[in-house]
Design a protein around this nucleic acid. Structure first.
Lengths: 224, 224
DNA sequence: CGCGTTGTATGATCGGTGTCATAGAGCCGG
DNA sequence: CCGGCTCTATGACACCGATCATACAACGCG
């Protein structure tokens, strides 16, 4: 299967699906490698086949904020490719990943031809706008502990995998810190105390949510 | 002129434009009054005719974050009306305003019929997603002073009006605080020192950017 | 296997902002 | 025109979380 099997592409007619299949390049990225960089002209529309891609912006001092976590089957760099401008953020493989790459010109052409494709992209974009607004609220109005609890629950839903009856996340404290706008140290301090409280089980590169209810309580701020 | 004169509606055929004109209600809101509330089912697509509308989310303790500032000619509550769900945030008139209101059902129908309308909405949404991401970066990585400088410049561009050779904003410190995720006191402290430094001229409900260059420097963080 | 690298852990300290309190200035309506 | 309200202003203080420093555990690789 290729990119043409994704949501929004399925309604395309056979010749166009073949054209996509022919134009799509499959590309492999090692963990940590850069897919594209902020400011670079957008020449492609991307989708994740396997792995995980982070969309992020960084400050001059090296600190960065992860704006989106792109899971398999999702598009990224899509709207900007359609509008033929520069990427407003960077994309980095959060783990070893395989991505599809479709030339922007072809994507634009298909969008003109198929309203359903445009509709599918609109749907993804609106979903992301809503989540961006929600995160804006979170980072502006909540304190770190609350934001972290919320982020863990969101991540668990999106990219968590169950094993042994508990939800597990493969993520580093640094990545979590970059998602909620804090530092590694603070993130580690909080996860450590949660670990002692039995709310989570923490290990290298991984983190098990043994007590999601407690996290929900913290996220709702019910204790303060 | 009605809502049918807005960008994206102009390509509609005459009978549909008439249908819109007939279905559109013009509604007046006093400063501070609520247009719709977060959680309420979205039954309409809105647009600002005159005035200014804030899209915001609030916390249980009363603090709030202004997500969007909607200027005349812009849509709001659009995507959510198309998707027939509940508003994810509230809308409040930031000043005395006149808004257009189009039944969601009609908007959905028109969107199915006119890809250009859907395209226009997609364009607005992508613009807002970009600005939301930029603000996320700002609030997560920058300190209050920097964020405030940036916000003033952004606002000046969007809703500033020139008088006497300087850009003026009609906005309260509370509103500014709610936009950048801080408190009134902190905002007042910063604007006060800027006032003393001659960077801005501060008065009740208004604020003149006498030295935008200085603000740009602060926004870029060139001094730290 | 040893060694460098990456990720986790924790303490000490500092500072940017939130919080609380008070006051005055501009504006509106009775 | 006076009382109440909103908005601006400013000080004192507390505290969350950043910063800096150090240590160690886990992993990868030559």
């Amino acid at each position: 299967m290729g990119i043409e099997g994704l949501r929004g592409f399925r309604t395309l007619r056979a010749p166009d699906r073949d054209a996509i299949a022919a134009a799509t390049r499959e590309q492999r990225f090692a963990k940590g490698s850069v897919v594209f960089t902020e400011g670079q002209p957008a020449d492609s529309l991307w989708a994740v086949k396997e792995g995980l891609v982070h969309i992020l912006k960084s400050a001059s001092d090296g600190r960065e904020i992860v704006l989106e976590v792109i899971a398999p089957g999702e598009l990224f760099g899509a709207v900007v490719a359609l509008e033929n401008r520069a990427y407003p953020a960077s994309a980095v493989a959060a783990e070893a990943s395989v991505v599809w790459r479709l030339p922007a010109e072809l994507a634009r052409e298909l969008c003109r031809k198929y309203p359903t494709l445009r509709a599918a992209i609109l749907e993804q974009v609106t979903g992301r706008l809503r989540s961006a607004h929600e995160r804006l609220r979170s980072v502006a109005l909540e304190r770190v502990e609350q934001r972290l609890a919320r982020m863990l629950l969101t991540l668990a839903e999106k990219v968590g995998h169950e094993r042994g009856g508990v939800l597990r996340l493969s993520v580093t404290r640094q990545e979590l810190a970059d998602m909620i706008g804090t530092t590694v140290e603070t993130t580690i301090r909080i996860t450590s105390t949660w670990q002692r409280a039995g709310i989570i089980q923490s290990s290298r590169q991984e983190l098990a949510l043994t007590n999601p209810e407690a996290l929900k309580n913290i996220a709702e701020g019910s204790d303060r």
